[in-house]
């Protein structure tokens, strides 16, 4: 009952000789919005395709709601709605026809198509051929198709691609609403941490097929240690002094030192120490790295 919505156990995947997923152990809890982050080509889409059984994985490596994907493919897919890469829609059919076709395949009432069109803001373009849709409209329809069966688990691969700022905000709000009010589990991939941090409760960072971080957004913030930038004369001597006193110097420039610190009191102690030892301190700036920088730092670790 309490099994995670998604669990992969030491998953590996190769395209020919190239290893694209390496020992991946994802764990997505029920009711969470899991931000699956990574630069382009990191293995996000491949992972999503494996979760959908589009790419073959060994038995007992991928579990959806506790059931092996290979053994319970159809039963598991009934609980999943997905948008993978570019929305897969029939260009010669209208938006409504695309949804009606999916309703037919899933045995759903035709009324559901109109509801979804309104939900994703395509009511006015319902009878327009999707070949004439803009990228943003296609993306909305793709999200609509994923939402159509009212799935327990949504896999959204870069869902805000091509959307205008309003569209991005709407999709974010929709994701939050689905997770909080309707208890859906959402795995949303992106290459932008700033995009994910506004909605996600949990984050997984992947690069070159390896999961480098997995935890809550708070866990990620804890990794983000603040630094103190000090402008002063004779930075080399100051750096030696501070090192002797047990401080960890991150960077030394001609007129500036950067070091880790933990509190305002510590900042004050550092300042006193430097002044007492004859250094001319002109400024102290506590800085917290942007999460985006942190993301870059994490992904650099296996570059």
């Amino acid at each position: 009952m309490n099994s995670p919505a998604i669990q992969t156990c030491g998953l590996n995947y190769h395209f020919g000789d190239q290893k694209v997923i390496e020992n991946l152990s994802l764990e997505v809890n029920r009711g969470s919005i899991y931000g699956f982050l990574g630069p382009n080509g990191a293995g996000k889409t491949t992972t999503i395709k494996i979760l959908l059984n589009l790419l073959k994985s060994p038995k007992d490596t991928v579990f959806v709601f506790g059931r092996d994907m290979n053994t319970y493919r159809t039963a598991n897919l009934k609980k999943i709605g997905a948008l993978v890469e570019q929305p897969a829609i029939y260009a010669h059919m209208t938006g409504k026809e695309n949804l009606l076709n999916r309703c037919m395949l899933l045995g759903l009432s035709k009324n559901k198509a109109s509801e979804i069109l309104e939900l994703v803001g395509l009511g006015a373009a319902a009878h327009k051929k999707t070949g004439q849709y803009s990228l943003g409209m296609k993306q909305r329809l793709g999200i609509g198709l994923a939402l159509l069966p009212d799935p327990e688990l949504l896999l959204l691969d870069e869902p805000t691609n091509g959307l205008d700022p309003n569209g991005i905000i709407e999709i974010r709000s929709l994701m939050i609403e689905l997770a909080t009010k309707h208890e859906k589990t959402i795995l949303v991939s992106s290459h932008l941490l700033s995009e994910i941090e506004k909605t996600a409760t949990h984050v997984g960072i992947i690069n070159k097929g390896q999961l480098l971080f997995q935890g809550t957004i708070e866990d990620l913030h804890l990794l983000n240690k603040p630094v103190l930038t000090i402008e002063l004369n004779n930075t080399q001597a100051a750096a030696q002094l501070l090192s002797r006193e047990g401080y960890h110097i991150e960077e030394t420039k001609a007129d500036q030192l950067t070091l880790e610190y933990s509190s305002a009191e510590q900042s004050s102690q550092i300042n006193s120490l430097l002044v007492q030892n004859g250094f001319n301190v002109s400024s102290l700036h506590p800085i917290r790295k942007a999460l985006e920088e942190l993301f870059l730092d994490i992904t650099k670790t296996n570059n």
């Binding site: 959908l52 589009l54 159809t74 039963a75 890469e85 029939y90 999916r102």
Partner: peptide, 18 residues
């Protein structure tokens, strides 16, 4: 070709149909 052209194989095979 209707599936190749629209890149819809992935959505077709991710439906709960055998």
């Amino acid at each position: 070709n209707i599936e190749h052209r629209n890149d819809t194989w992935k959505s077709l095979f991710s439906q709960p149909l055998n």
